[in-house]
Design a protein around this nucleic acid. Sequence first.
RNA 1: UGACCCAUGGUGUAAUUGGCAACACGUCUGGUUUUGGUCCAGAAGAGUUCAGGUUCGAGCCCUGAUGGGUCAACCA
Length: 569
Amino acid sequence: MVEKSNVTDNSEVQKKANFIDLQIEEDLKAGKNNNRVHTRFPPEPNGYLHIGHAKSICLNFGIAEKFGGKTNLRFDDTNPSKEETEYVESIKDDIRWLGFDWEDRLYFTSDYFDKLFEFAIQLIKDGKAYVDDQDAETIASQKGTPTRPGTESPFRNRSVEENLDLFRRMAAGEFDEGSRVLRAKIDMASPNMHMRDPFIYRIIKAHHHRTGDKWKIYPMYDFAHGQSDYWEGITHSVCTLEFEVHRPLYDWFIDQLQESDYRPRQIEFARLNLNYTVMSKRKLLELVKDGHVKGWDDPRMPTISGLRRRGYTPESIRNFADKVGVTKVDGVIDVSLLEFSIKEHLNRTAQRVMGVLNPLKVVITNYPEGESEELDAVNNPEDESMGKRKVPFSRELFIERDDFMEDPPRKFFRLGPGREVRLRYAYYITCNDVIKDENGEITELHCTYDPATKGGNSPDGRKVKATLHWVSVKHAVQSEVRLYDRLFNDENPLGHKDVDFKEFMNPESLKVLLNCFIEPFVKDAKPLDHFQFERLGYFNVDLDSTKENIIFNRTVALRDSWAKSQKRK
RNA sequence: UGACCCAUGGUGUAAUUGGCAACACGUCUGGUUUUGGUCCAGAAGAGUUCAGGUUCGAGCCCUGAUGGGUCAACCA
């Protein structure tokens, strides 16, 4: 069975087996690979990980967990011109943050460069690989098309000795980049383009982030991946759908290598797509490089570091990965599911706090000047063990501008002239006067409070229709709040021919509010701490935050059926 | 005149392997509520791309069609 055997967060959810689980169960039933299950997560260190990688990470480590196997982390670093150590470190951080552990199984494809080289030599000796002296264009022209077979290279039938000599000289750096490649000799007429004598080694004279300048030639992905799997004892090599057509080639190389019953198997699944964003490293890099966002970890980015900074928790991302499932169907997941995942987690765990984003001053005219008091507030109504805190109250308060209307429409329950509402955990107040400046802008409200309603209940049983959040002016912490909206206005920014995806960027994806006031409880909050600002949403402390200037990110807004009903009108 | 893959409510995933199409998100309604949140109750929404076939019975098996995706980087 494939249910999680360990009962972690006592949720004991029995996960449905997906098609990969089923295939693994079959392999196990057939006694393959001595009943071992061993997966790997193989990122290329050429960018930061995104939520799509998170799905793959959860899948690979999840499989190992379900079947009592192991998962390796392997950096697929076969192209020195694109890869950097910075990326290696960020990737490791992100995986660890998600809560997965590769233990001592950290590998680099570059660890296998010597073995790969030897394997190439062997193929040459076996007459299964040859050096091609033609340039890229010529070779491409001989490749044929998907509907027309290719033609063989004039260098295809060189002698083994000549191939050996040339290949060694390629490795020695005797030739220029692009002047020669090593190719596998397979079948130029294959209906599968990848089998038409694929390149397996090319000359690149760039500094490699790990092997330095030792190598002048580097293996191609197809020549490295399966072999790395094989040498690491990987049993199930899970990758995304676009590698489906590579599988025959993967198998071909394994055929050349296999010397026992053990054999790794490639299985493909559909990559994650999210609407209103882009999910390709190249496109994300473009956003970073061109300054459309502030970096890989900009809270608007679908990167793991961006989501982390935005306030997403590892739990929420893992739950999300579970919810989207694993299939071979190319689909697009609605961001609302991602947002649901974080709201679900933070609702249970986030400290409640009151914060006013667009302040409107309220003077409690019958509250003694210069005095203040502390009121009890619940830290999390979903979790009594989180206890209570004190919130200071005084004569001058801020409330949310949206919570007052001079001419309240029909279903508006909040404050208006002559109306009485409750200030959460404090008192009932009634609005008596609306003070305006010379432009007619409302500058403050004069209200009276009912001392008998302390804590928020009226002894006479009088009801109010609304409860507002508030802060005490002299106690509140002024802070910056960054509100985020989707990065793109279009559901599928990449789905338009002839229009660059950046054309669809949302100009209002970031709104910075500098004049926000939060209750003093947040004074000592540290970067990445989560809060629910009551009635508003979930916020966390940004990495830019300092003791003097606390900065909050809005992770996600609370569901707001009032705003929704207003929008409909 | 190719190969390979895919097709179930708006979205994503299920369906005891041939037996009443279910769950989640989203949407809507009502209730509870010191958060217009949460929670609770309920509703709408697919008859499974189409056409044949096998079968007592097909979302599931077979055939064909249609639609979509991937493949012709010295990227992974």
